[in-house]
Write a protein that binds this DNA or RNA. Structure first.
Length: 932
RNA sequence: GCCCGGAUGGCGCAAUUGGCUGACGCGAUCGGCUCAAAACCGAUUGUCCGCAAGGACAUGUGGGUUCGAGUCCCACUCCGGGCACCA
């Protein structure tokens, strides 16, 4: 009858706040009658299987099951094991099958920008068959903005050849093969999505350098959904910071497009996007991205020294680029393009903002001024954003300003900065722009912006934008435009581990979807499944491990045209594919007829949280590190499934809660190297390691900082309940918290004292009485229930636990005085403790004589009559300083409050003989005398 | 550089959302129990002045609004996170 110490085995936990927080809130919700599906993360099973396999030189499939079993043991050790959880193994053939099935839905869909949405707005996915019908019937034009050169003349469908028809349809698909510059990471032997590359140009996993390289890869058309992904954030109960991150990542900008005609090339226009169309008159040159398709067209055979516009005088030598002044334009441009494409993101970063570029030899005409302006190619313009070309307005854009200084290009002010701006730069008011130290990007009045058709002069920026955009629109030289930073999602990886694509290629290299009946496509057994790691400068294309499985790659199938030979797609899907829909599979994990039964899906996903707007998972607890990865990708897949009628809510996760991480003190020596934290000695605020002083700072627990604390010792010495309770008591769940082992004794004491208030440890007998609690204890009990209930609902477990401490402290007093605990208090205590410390609560519950488990008992309800007091103590202030305290009856009027306050001896003394200017009374709160 | 958070005792953190700052826990100090230590139990614990009663000062810094500011406004400092040549 000693205190029970539930424990487990082999525990390694990186950041268990989320697991335990999820479990505690799930238990609480279930006790309140919610239906709870407890889905541990798809890859929450410790090491990702593939990484584990590579580190241990084993086949991933061998390791996954033991990996999951290991995680189960860990969860059990934390007291997280209970029957509501369901799990699915990522190796489950059914899971492969339905992931591939969803991919086929995406592949066989297109985005109709004009289709009405049920909830208002436009643009949704539709089956590709409907597109084909529209094309055949002529209801839809056969030109396609997605790939403009497929059928530029709009030749009718019936006159197109089969190859063009097929290419046209493929270009509409939400999943498509594209040859374009991608993030190539030789260190991992695979390509990566933009979201998986860090700001300093390295892979998020493994921290290897990443290079840009054109490769043929699968992409998903997430950009089609950028408006809805942005707008629907309003429906969600998510942390504002995550919403902001998604907004920034999608990066919608509004502005205008404008056409600049290329001189000497009849009918060739360069389209630019700008958020500052009001500065069009100040465009003194243009820049194309190194990958811009028009480069080939416009570069002349000779440098145009003779034809340079008068403004530029002799062409500066620097314009010919950094590879020698004797190059012809084509050579200079080609070498520059090569130079730019070979640079890694890391090198770009290291070079800072230094502007490089080459003059293409061609000129364009500024549509407002008619001036000839040179066209450059430079890598500060990115092909992936806007149109891959810009009009450069050096006076009002800092990047253009720096480039113009580097290359001696004219800088013309078309917005007048305020006088204060000139003053702050020690310039005379109205000084010409080529004397400025930086571009002026603020608001001001347009100048130098008049031609014979339009004038902006005198207008503020917003008015000028509207005016010039209207003029561009009217003349056909441009239009209002919206651009986003979001790019299509690069979806293929050169790894063994991952779902194979349900795609084969025919003799003409056309991708063909496998029929549903041929799913799942399983990975072949291979002995060598490691990715091909290439040197950074190796020109060979990356080879996926599956390409080496010859017998698997070549297949003979009947796909409608009789038996034919096909070649399987050898890339695999990224880890995100599975995590994009696992929450749906958890609803119905053993279903072999569908990825989820529609009735089951509707039961769990629709409107259980009382908010009809978004639906989806009621509460999703997870880390903020997935803000623009999993949480964006899953929203995208879910919306496609929604559009195609496979799920019934527009969003996957209604309420998102980001748990914090457990950090720990880490120490660095003089060289900045981490030293083992457990061997650091503290003495009088100074920290030393092997006698040498070290610096202390906080960091995420882990191997790299040498500061991991394994909870093994904690649950061995104190039990899993104590560990759970400690982690929930450390502070708010959404904040990262430093681990401090010695703080554990506090919560352990709470459990031990509660246990002793129920059980006599010497005899094992209950010390519980049916007699009612005294009035004060009972009032405190109901107040505690009220507060704990509220705090649990908002996931504020730390303050809920504080209240349980207080109630148990009261119980200590009662037991000390009477030798017994009132049953009503003990039962409520056990119930309130149950989500937080399930083992001890269950044990107490059972000892109290209850048959069933405490897990399904409803959470206690407060008695409202116990929550109100007859009297309340309030402070009496004089000039805002507390000078006394008085008791007033609940609901007393102002007069009674003032009378009570004046009756206080000390207050009366201080008020004696002074002029009272005003009396502020907040009933039930305070009385304040304002005196002279 | 831009966008989010945050800063309260020796420490982790509370504060009914403008109304008694520091709940609860850790640590520390003193005491009890003990041959002794651990465990356990009790008391004290924001700082300063004071024997005490009591008083003054205190929520990163400097201003402001208010009868009253940890909370609201303005300017700044530091810490954490995210983004970053996005036209």
């Amino acid at each position: 009858d000693m205190f029970p110490y539930p424990s487990g085995e082999g525990l390694h936990v990186g950041h268990p706040l989320g697991f335990i927080g999820t479990d505690v809130s799930a238990r609480f919700m279930r006790m309140n009658g919610f239906n709870v599906l407890h889905a541990m993360g798809y890859d929450a099973f410790g090491l990702p299987a593939e990484q584990f396999a590579v580190e241990h030189g084993r086949h991933p499939r061998e390791t996954t099951d033991s990996n999951i079993a290991n995680m189960r043991r860990q969860l059990h050790a934390l007291g997280l094991g209970h029957d509501a959880r369901r799990s699915i193994a990522t190796t489950d053939p059914q899971y492969y099958r339905w992931t591939q099935w969803i991919f086929l839905q995406i592949f066989n869909a297109w985005f109709d920008e004009d289709a009405e949405l049920a909830g208002g707005g436009k643009g949704r996915a539709r089956p590709i068959d409907e597109l084909i019908t529209e094309l055949q019937s002529g209801a839809r034009a056969t030109t396609n903005d997605l790939v403009p050169d497929l059928n530029p003349d709009g030749t009718p469908w019936s006159e197109l050849d089969a190859a063009t028809k097929r290419a046209l349809i493929d270009s509409y698909r939400l999943a498509y093969v594209d040859e374009a510059p991608v993030n190539w990471c030789p260190g991992l032997g695979t390509v990566l999505a933009n979201e998986e590359v860090t700001a300093d140009g390295r892979s998020e996993r493994g921290n290897h350098p990443v290079f840009r390289r054109p490769l043929k890869q699968w992409k998903l058309r997430i950009t089609a959904y950028s408006d809805r992904l942005l707008d629907d954030l309003a429906l969600l109960d998510w942390p504002e910071s995550i919403k902001t991150m998604q907004r920034n990542w999608i990066g919608r900008s509004t502005g205008a497009s404008a056409l600049f005609s290329v001189e000497e090339h009849e009918g060739v226009d360069i389209e630019v996007f700008t958020t500052r169309p009001d500065t069009l008159f100040g465009a003194t040159y243009m820049v194309l991205a190194p990958e811009h398709p028009l480069l080939d067209t416009i570069v002349p055979s000779e440098w145009p020294d003779a034809t340079l516009a008068a403004d530029f005088g002799d062409m500066p030598v620097s314009w010919k680029g950094i590879f020698g002044a004797d190059e012809l334009p084509s050579g200079a441009v080609r070498k520059y393009v090569e130079f730019a494409s070979r640079k890694s993101e890391l090198e770009r970063q290291a070079e800072g903002r230094d502007k490089t570029g080459v003059f293409t030899g061609a000129f364009a005409t500024n549509p407002t001024t008619g001036a000839s302006i040179p066209i450059f190619v430079a890598d500060y313009v990115l092909m992936g954003y806007g149109t891959g070309a810009i009009m450069a307005v050096p006076a009002h854009d800092q990047r253009d300003f720096e480039f113009a200084q580097e290359f001696d290009l004219p800088i013309t002010a078309v917005v007048q900065p305020p006088d204060a701006w000139f003053a702050s730069h020690s310039l005379d008011v109205g000084a010409p722009a080529n004397e400025w130290p930086e571009a002026f990007t603020g608001d001001g009045v347009a100048i130098n912006s008049t031609n014979e058709h339009v004038s902006l002069d005198g207008m503020v920026v917003d008015d000028a934008k509207r005016r010039i955009t209207a003029w561009l629109d009217a003349t056909g030289g441009g239009a209002p435009a919206v651009t986003t930073k979001l790019r299509d999602w690069l979806f293929s990886r050169q790894r063994y581990w991952g779902e194979p694509f349900p795609i084969v290629y025919d003799a003409d290299d056309n991708p063909i979807a496998l029929p549903e009946s041929m799913l799942p496509v399983l990975l072949p057994e291979m002995t060598d499944f490691e990715p091909t790691i290439l040197a950074e400068d190796d020109p060979r294309p990356p080879e996926p491990p599956l390409a080496r499985a010859d017998a698997w790659v070549a297949v003979e199938l009947d796909l409608g045209d009789g038996e034919q030979f096909y070649r399987r797609e050898t890339n695999t899907m990224p880890q995100w594919a599975g995590s994009c829909w696992y929450y749906l599979r958890y609803l119905d994990p053993t279903n072999e007829q569908a990825f989820v039964d529609p009735a089951v899906e509707e039961y769990w996903m629709v409107g259980h949280h009382g908010d009809p707007n978004s639906g989806g998972v009621d509460l999703y607890v997870g880390g903020a590190e997935h803000a623009v990865l999993h949480l964006l990708y899953a929203r995208f897949w879910h919306k496609v499934l929604f559009d195609l009628g496979h799920v019934s809510t527009p969003e996957p996760f209604h309420r998102l809660f980001n748990q914090g991480m457990i950090t720990a003190a880490a120490y660095t020596d003089e060289r900045g190297m981490y030293v083992p934290a457990e061997q650091v000695v503290e003495q009088g605020g100074e920290y030393t390691y092997e006698g040498a002083p070290v610096d202390r700072h906080d960091g995420k627990m882990g191997k790299s900082l040498k500061n991991a604390v394994t909870p093994d010792d904690i649950y061995r010495d104190y039990g899993a309940d104590t560990l759970r309770l400690y982690e929930m008591f450390m502070g708010p769940l959404d904040a990262s918290r430093p681990w401090n082992t010695r703080d554990i004794t506090g919560v352990h004491t709470l459990l031990r004292r509660f246990w002793r208030n129920v059980v006599d440890e010497d005899t094992g007998a209950l010390r519980v009485t049916d007699a009612p609690a005294d009035d004060e204890t009972r009032r405190q009990l109901h107040r505690t229930i009220d507060k704990v209930r509220a705090d649990m609902g908002t996931l504020e477990f730390n303050t809920a636990i504080a209240k349980l401490f207080e109630l148990n402290n009261r119980l200590n007093v009662v037991v000390a005085e009477t030798g017994e605990s009132p049953l009503e208090v003990v039962e409520a205590m056990a119930l309130m403790l149950s989500p937080l410390a399930p083992h001890i609560a269950e044990e107490v519950w059972s000892r109290l004589g209850h048959e069933g488990t405490i897990t399904y008992e409803p959470f206690p309800e407060p008695d409202p009559s116990q929550l109100v007091d007859d009297e309340v103590e309030i402070p009496v202030q004089i000039n805002g300083k507390v000078r006394g305290k008085v008791r007033v009856a609940t609901g007393a009027d102002d007069t009674a409050h003032e009378a009570a306050a004046r009756a206080d001896v000390k207050v009366a003394e201080l008020l004696d003989g002074v002029e009272i200017r005003k009396v502020i009374i907040v009933p039930g709160r305070m009385v304040n005398f304002v005196v002279a």
